[in-house]
Simulated assay, not measured.
Amino acid sequence: MNQTRYTADVVAVDPDGRVLLIQRRWEPFTGQWALPGGHVDPGETSLDAAVRELEEETGVKVAWSDLTRLGTWNAAGRDPRGRYSTDAYLVRVPAGTIARADDDAAAIRWADLATAARTSLAFDHADILRAAIRAL
């Protein structure tokens, strides 16, 4: 049985045009930079999962009502673990937002959004960043 797993990812952007990235603690892509995000738990919406994962991985708290849906990414092969479909969201955070690495994140960093979209990120996260740039 080839079950599709459901995830949510968050593009958190500050007023200076920087995006919050996490360094992955676990496989796949251990040590690579990625967007905060993760599995949608039973009973959750992807919005709920996006808010929860952002807080768990970075300590940044946002309301689901502040998230704007960017789209769904579900191309075959986007995740080496199998078939995954992710809903990606954009959220604007205030200047001076403090983030810290926690849970699945080994480290965090604020990166220039345009530069990050041109770099090699885990999964298809650079594609998601390019969609965020178009939405902004």
Rank of each mutant, 00 (worst) to 15 (best):
Ile22Arg: 02
Pro28His: 06
Thr30Trp: 07
Tyr6Gln: 15
Met1His: 10
Pro80Glu: 14
Gly77Cys: 14
Pro28Gly: 03
Ala75Trp: 13
Arg130Ile: 07
Ala50Ile: 12
Ser120Asp: 15
Ala75Ser: 13
Asp104Phe: 15
Lys61Asp: 14
Trp26Cys: 14
Arg100Asp: 09
His39Tyr: 15
Leu54Arg: 04
Leu20Cys: 06
Ala132Arg: 08
Asp16Asn: 12
Thr97Ala: 03
Val60Pro: 00
Arg118Glu: 15
Trp73Ala: 10
Arg118Gly: 14
Leu47Phe: 02
Gly43Asp: 06
Leu54Pro: 01
Pro94Ala: 01
Arg5Cys: 14
Asp124Ala: 00
Arg25His: 10
Val11Leu: 03
Ala106His: 01
Ser85Arg: 12
Arg18Phe: 11
Asp103Gln: 14
Ala12Met: 03
Ala75Ile: 08
Phe123Tyr: 02
His125Cys: 04
Trp64Tyr: 15
Trp73Val: 03
Ala34Phe: 02
Gln23Ala: 06
Ser120Tyr: 14
Asp112Phe: 03
Ala8Thr: 10
Glu55Gln: 11
Thr45Gly: 05
Gly82Glu: 03
Ala111Thr: 06
Asp112Arg: 09
Arg109Val: 11
Gly43Arg: 04
Arg83His: 09
Glu56Asp: 12
Ile133Tyr: 04
Val19Asp: 00
Arg118Pro: 10
Ala111Val: 10
Tyr89Phe: 05
Ala101Tyr: 00
Glu44Cys: 06
Thr45Tyr: 01
Tyr84Arg: 15
Val60Met: 02
Thr30Cys: 15
Arg52Lys: 11
Asp87Arg: 08
His39Lys: 13
Lys61Thr: 15
Trp33Glu: 03
Asp103His: 14
Ala116Thr: 07
Ala135Asn: 05
Gly31Val: 01
Leu136Pro: 15
Val91Tyr: 10
Asp16Arg: 07
Thr115Val: 13
Leu67Thr: 07
Val11Asp: 02
Val62Pro: 07
Ala99Asn: 04
Gly17Glu: 04
